[in-house]
Design a protein around this nucleic acid. Sequence first.
DNA 1: AATGCCTAACAAAGATGCCC
DNA 2: GGGCATCTTTGTTAGGCATT
Length: 226
Amino acid sequence: MSTPRSMTAGARNILRSNDSASLWNYTVAPGWSINEAEILRKALMKFGVGNWSKIIESNCLVGKTNAQMNLQTQRMLGQQSTAEFAGLHIDPRLIGQKNSLIQGEHIRRKNGCIVNTGAKLSREEIRRRIAENKEQYELQEEEWSAIDLPLPEDPQLLLEAKRSEKVRLELELKNVQRQIAMLRKAGKRFEMESSESPKTEQDEEEHAEEIIEDQPNGKRIRLDAC
DNA sequence: AATGCCTAACAAAGATGCCC
DNA sequence: GGGCATCTTTGTTAGGCATT
């Protein structure tokens, strides 16, 4: 992939946030919360970089795949390649802070992470770097073995909670879509009516009543306030 | 307002290395 | 050699901002 592709021209497949008043922006940025990132940081210190299976087994990050964890690790380290830290019990934040200060013409970054611009590293070179990084950054065993990772009370319950949250969001989405359709309809009717005759106070009240909508959370909102 | 460009996030696939 | 785990690359989707 050389350059990112633009959205397809013409009709878009979804309603975009910049097409309307941020109806879709109730979501936090997808991916990782600060808390989850902190748990991963501690897990890397405890289990070592790349030991995703151990982290998954520990149940400290339910629902995260190794690919997701690898990407988040890259972001914390501030570099794309994690191979030179494989198996090391390190604080990724420390490396990240160092990497963020590195400047130079030869430094290429992608999404803030330093990417490898030279030839692919040989096995020997990776081993050499691991040894170097071990010397420089690895925590003492007493330190990393004492790290306590937060455990969900019951991973199954957590999963169930995520599922019902998904159902709730889907309902909310349907509701918003219905609101948009209603607003469009009301807008068209309003245009037609206002071009035909001046609006009375009674008309305004009737219109206001139409655009009050029940929300999944039990609240009722006036849609013209959006 | 409509559309394009860039970036971020993620999933999937391919490549590679290790262990039995 | 086969299976598995991990690493890397590629492709897709979506949000934000700029431009027309």
